[in-house]
Design a protein around this nucleic acid. Structure first.
Length: 407
DNA sequence: GAGTTTGAAACT
DNA sequence: CAGTTTCAAACTC
């Protein structure tokens, strides 16, 4: 298996995924669909395609794809890792492809994209951005973000990372303490978590999900270039005035904001609460954590590393763990999914992971205490230490019980 | 469900 | 690096 793994990309960085869940999903995906396609979609870890990653461009021809596909399938059989993944069947069956649009109130169980032109190989694609493969519930067209096209995915990813090393890093950086805070301080305290790059909202006043900060449940910060910020999780102004509970808004009347905001916040908070919980869980909080759950993508293969089950983890940032069937996994720390995806108690997952965890793992996510304040940022892949840690994690995957089957 | 709006990502 | 275009999600009707 290879992993892409990663974390959370930004968008989702905030959006997150529950670790546990993500894991499952991936796992599930692998197995389930697979009954049908196992041969094609694979997790093979060691493939090296001719054009592989390095040279790949995001757009490959069908032919290329086919080739890759074939190769992959071949190796796949050999892949030791497969064992790792728990078999779950039919995670998807219940969920036919649907449009990703989520109805209000609908839990966003897991990520599903609806890409039509990007082939799911650009950051526009939530799945791709999150470091996960598209799976059945996705309504994407011409999707290349599948295990079959692992090489393409990895190559594309590299390309994107070369352009922006942090492209797949979690967008929202949370501090360990964030969880509790949000709830109480929510409105005015921005606190611990912030969007890495900040938003650039012009019309949404950072009160809609168009705003990545808002979507991630974090306040706007000095990094934001938003206009008329009213982010209920923390306005840019407040951030700037740090400490001073400045009520001042740049443009607009506060009345509305305050009142409405609070209401909104309350609701949001409720949702976020869940997130926070996740956050509490070290795993979710940490950008790196997500990796665990993801199915690793290829990186290794291209580099000639031996495929290890855990491997995936090592990949620079990607998390891709295969999810075939289920829904896309989401590892990201916070976002939408988290809320919904997480059905399972955070604790459970970690526990499991722990069991398998090797002491050496660079990051301990399992322990509640371990918190990472700052995201790993661009280097993930490179640091050996992490890889090892992740490996462990992955191993655990197999044993991982499905937390909550969604659908 | 179709159409519009929005802002990130990608491109020039 | 700034401006423009493309894209898909979020949102509205």
């Amino acid at each position: 298996m290879r992993n892409w793994c990663l974390l959370s990309p930004g968008r989702d960085s905030s959006r997150c995924i529950l670790p546990g869940i993500g894991l499952h999903l991936n796992a599930l995906a692998i197995n389930s669909k697979d009954s049908k396609k196992i041969k094609h979609e694979t997790f093979s870890s060691s493939i090296t395609l001719p054009g592989s990653a390095a040279s790949f461009h995001s757009r490959t021809t069908d032919r290329e794809l086919d080739e890759s596909l074939t190769l992959v399938s071949t190796e796949r059989d050999n892949d030791p890792n497969e064992n790792v993944v728990p078999l779950v069947e039919d995670f998807n069956q219940t969920s036919p492809k649907k449009k990703r649009r989520r109805l209000e109130g609908e839990p966003e169980a897991c990520k599903r994209c609806n890409c039509k032109k990007s082939k799911c190989l650009k950051l526009y694609c939530e799945c791709f951005a999150a470091g996960v493969y598209c799976i059945e519930p996705c309504a994407c067209q011409d999707c290349f973000n599948k295990p079959i096209h692992e090489d393409t995915v990895l190559a594309t990813r590299k390309q994107i990372e070369s352009r922006n090393p942090l492209a797949f890093a979690p967008k929202v950086i949370r501090s360990s303490e964030s969880a509790p805070e949000i709830r109480d301080e929510s409105i005015k305290t921005p606190a611990s978590a912030r969007h890495k790059r900040g938003c650039n909202c012009k019309k949404s006043t950072c009160l809609k999900k168009y705003c990545e900060c808002y979507q991630g449940g974090v306040g706007c910060s000095i990094n934001c270039r938003c206009e008329g910020c009213k982010n209920v999780f923390g306005r840019k102004d407040d951030f700037l005035n740090s400490g001073s509970a400045s009520m001042e808004m740049e443009d607009e009347p506060e009345d509305e904001t305050e009142a409405s905001v609070k209401n909104g916040v309350d609701k949001i908070l409720q949702k976020t609460e869940i997130q926070n919980n996740d956050e509490q869980n070290p795993n979710s909080a940490l950008p790196t954590t997500p990796l665990r759950f993801y199915r690793p993508l290829v990186q290794f293969s291209s580099k000639g590393k031996p495929p290890r089950s855990f491997l995936g983890i090592g990949s620079s940032s990607g998390l891709y763990t295969g999810h075939r069937h289920g829904k896309p996994n989401i590892l990201r720390p916070q976002s939408k999914f988290e809320k919904q995806c997480q059905n399972a108690p955070d604790d459970d997952i970690p526990e499991i992971l722990r069991e398998n965890h090797s002491p050496s793992s660079g990051i301990k996510t399992s322990s509640p205490n371990s918190k990472r304040v700052s995201p790993p940022q661009s280097n993930w892949g490179s640091s050996p230490g992490r890889r090892s840690g992740r490996k462990l994690i992955l191993q655990s995957i197999p044993s991982f019980p499905s937390l909550t089957p969604q659908h």
